[in-house]
């Protein structure tokens, strides 16, 4: 790796001020599982890393029945999935966390970093001066695009790589963003951006802004949730596609519910129309069949990835059947 300075801020204000001076190309550094890969591949060549790990207050997991979960951005993925409340009440999140990367990476990577990780597109990671790196062409359009997006793409066709983000969307999660100027809270669905809005970043964070906490509202007793990830390797891999759902059920009726999809779009994907249709839906396989057929109706697959459409629809159907079975 090329040389960089290692800055140890004592608080968020100092970290934000260091990161805000973008002429130095100072990058936020937490678990490092994504950033060190980017540096090794020379996608990023920072002059300095700002180590967030010594900043107090970003490491805890708190739960109250009124507020739900408050998760410090530096909580490790393995720490979060092992938490009692996550295992008891937030199955979709637990499953997504356990499906993320390998045991070692889950001991290293943080939940904040997971939400802010860069795409895995091989042109972006490789030696291609692509759109996202300031070039003037997306190589995926005419290239190898089996793993690229089927919806929400253009002019760049990445997919967002996070598993927990897909789960958290169905839980109506939010994030606190802090900077030297203060803090703000943003719904997770408004945190991610499409290439048509900003080709150079995957979220709304501006230089100097730092995700400090993730908030997950409480869920009722009647809530069931789950996550299915389709990957090509049995051991560990990024999602080819994934489906998350959180449903509130009363008897044979879904009172309301949310579904979200990974591996299909440049951001973790939700469809308002599908969530509306889940509301009041009676639990019948036929209903799940017709609902799933409506998913990704606006998709425009690339040459090699139309297979993702039936895959996502069938996985949603399977997940709904599983969640409503008992």
């Amino acid at each position: 790796m090329r040389y960089f300075d290692y800055i140890q801020p004592e608080n968020i204000k100092q970290a934000s001020e260091s990161a805000g001076r973008d002429w130095r190309k100072a990058l936020l550094y937490a678990g490092g599982t994504d950033l060190l890969g980017l540096i090794k591949n020379e996608v990023e060549s920072p002059a300095a890393l700002i180590n967030l790990k010594a900043i107090p207050g970003l490491n805890g997991i708190e739960y109250s029945e009124r507020e739900g979960l408050t998760i410090g951005a530096l909580v490790k993925l393995s720490q979060l999935s092992a938490h009692e409340v996550v295992r008891e009440k937030y199955s979709v999140l637990e499953q997504a966390l356990k499906e993320t990367a390998s045991p070692q990476l889950r001991n290293m990577g943080t939940i904040g970093g997971n939400l802010c990780q860069r795409p895995r597109c091989w042109y972006f990671r490789g030696d291609f001066h692509c759109l996202r790196k300031g070039g003037d062409i997306c190589y995926a359009v005419d290239g190898e695009n089996k793993y690229h997006c089927v919806i929400g793409g253009g002019p760049c066709f990445i997919v967002h790589p996070s598993d927990p983000a897909v789960a958290l969307l169905t839980l109506d999660a939010g994030v606190t963003i802090a900077s030297a100027k203060g803090t703000k809270r943003v719904a997770l669905k408004d945190f991610f951006v499409l290439p048509e809005d900003d080709i150079y970043r995957e979220n709304i964070l501006q230089p100097g802004e730092i995700v400090t906490h993730i908030h997950v509202p409480p869920v009722s007793e009647k809530t069931v949730s789950g996550y299915i990830k389709f990957r090509e390797r049995g051991a560990w891999d990024f999602a080819v596609v994934s489906v998350a759902a959180t449903l509130r059920i009363n008897g044979d009726t879904i009172i309301d519910g949310k579904a979200a999809f990974g591996g299909v779009a440049p951001k973790p994907w939700q469809e308002e129309k599908i969530n509306q249709k889940l509301k009041g839906l009676s639990v019948k396989p036929g209903n799940f069949e017709s609902l799933s057929a409506e998913v990704l109706k606006e998709a425009e697959p690339l040459n090699q990835n139309a297979f993702k459409l039936p895959l996502v629809r069938n996985l949603l159907k399977r997940l709904l059947v599983q969640l409503t079975a008992s």
């Binding site: 290692y6 490092g32 060190l36 180590n51 790990k53 393995s78 070692q104 990476l105 001991n107 290293m108």
Partner: peptide
């Protein structure tokens, strides 16, 4: 490159020594 860091397995090639 797996080593234990405070008893947990990590990839030592992918964290900085300073960490």
């Amino acid at each position: 490159c797996t080593v234990l860091l405070d008893g947990e397995a990590v990839y030592s090639c992918h964290i900085l020594a300073l960490d």
